[in-house]
Amino acid sequence: MSHSAAQDALDDTCVFCEIVAGRMPCAKVAEDETTLAFMDIDPGSDGHLLVIPKQHSADLLSVPAEDLVATTLAAQRIAKAMYSGLGSEGVNLLNCCGSVGWQTVFHFHLHVIPRYRDKSKDRLELPFEPGGAADADAIEEYARLLAAAL
């Protein structure tokens, strides 16, 4: 199946495509000709939202460059507004790609997550403990493998 045939097949059942088409409700935050931003229905913090390209792409690996750029720029604009509009003290930008990478809706999207010191507003925690000792040889081997794949 070609990319566009696979894309068309997904469009009919994609919840985010249904939101773009106006057939499912959302709490819209921002919209332009290419992107739509709306509140996440299962937020990790107060003000957590999603930014999507209106055109369906299943994930980070298939989103066209122009939609990736537009979505990222919209996310940046909204992240800046989180500081002034919500009093956020930080922001996480997160993309989950593939089911093993925690993706649950297969329409490319960016989570824009305001972060707060006040844990009553911020329920999100890191899934790992940063700052642990790293294996320098393993890091070098991963760099070699990835460079070769590029």
Rank of each mutant, 00 (worst) to 15 (best):
L145V: 04
E140I: 01
G90R: 11
M1S: 12
F106M: 14
G101A: 08
P114F: 13
K80Q: 15
D59S: 15
M24P: 01
A143T: 08
L145A: 04
F108W: 03
E140S: 01
H107K: 08
S99Q: 11
L61G: 12
E129V: 13
Q7A: 13
S84G: 12
M24C: 07
G98N: 10
Q7R: 15
E129H: 04
A70F: 02
L73F: 08
N92F: 12
E141P: 00
S45D: 15
M1D: 10
G101E: 07
A74K: 03
F38G: 01
V105W: 02
E33T: 06
E31A: 13
E31Q: 14
E66D: 11
G85R: 14
E140K: 08
T104H: 06
V112G: 01
S88W: 13
E141S: 03
C17E: 00
L94M: 13
T35D: 03
D42K: 03
E140Q: 05
H48A: 02
L49P: 00
G87S: 09
S120H: 09
L86D: 11
H56D: 07
R77Y: 13
E31I: 11
V69K: 09
T72R: 10
L145N: 05
G90M: 14
L68F: 12
G132T: 05
Q7P: 03
L124V: 13
E31T: 11
Y83T: 15
P130C: 04
S99P: 09
M82F: 15
G87C: 14
L150E: 06
F108M: 06
F16T: 00
H56R: 09
G98M: 14
Q55W: 03
C17D: 02
G98Y: 07
A30C: 04
E18Y: 00
L94Y: 07
S57P: 11
H109F: 08
D118F: 04
S2G: 05
G85P: 11
A5Q: 12
F16R: 00
L10W: 10
L124N: 08
E125D: 13
T35Y: 01
R123W: 12
A134Y: 04
A27N: 08
H107E: 03
S57F: 04
L146W: 06
V91M: 12
A149K: 10
L50I: 10
A143I: 06
A58M: 07
P114S: 11
K80E: 15
V51M: 08
T35I: 02
H107R: 06
C97G: 15
H111A: 12
Q103K: 12
A27T: 07
A9L: 15
Y142V: 02
D11C: 09
R77V: 13
T104M: 06
I19Q: 02
D137C: 00
L49V: 01
F128W: 14
V20T: 04
Y116N: 10
A21Y: 01
A30T: 07
F108C: 05
A75D: 09
L50M: 08
T13F: 11
G131T: 05
A148K: 05
L145K: 12
V105P: 01
A134K: 02
P127L: 09
M39F: 00
E141Q: 06
D122Y: 07
L126F: 02
D137S: 08
R23Y: 07
A5C: 03
F108K: 02
S99Y: 05
G131W: 04
Q76A: 15
G98A: 12
L94C: 13
R115S: 11
C17L: 07
A143M: 03
D8E: 14
C14G: 01
V91S: 12
L61R: 05
C14S: 10
G22H: 10
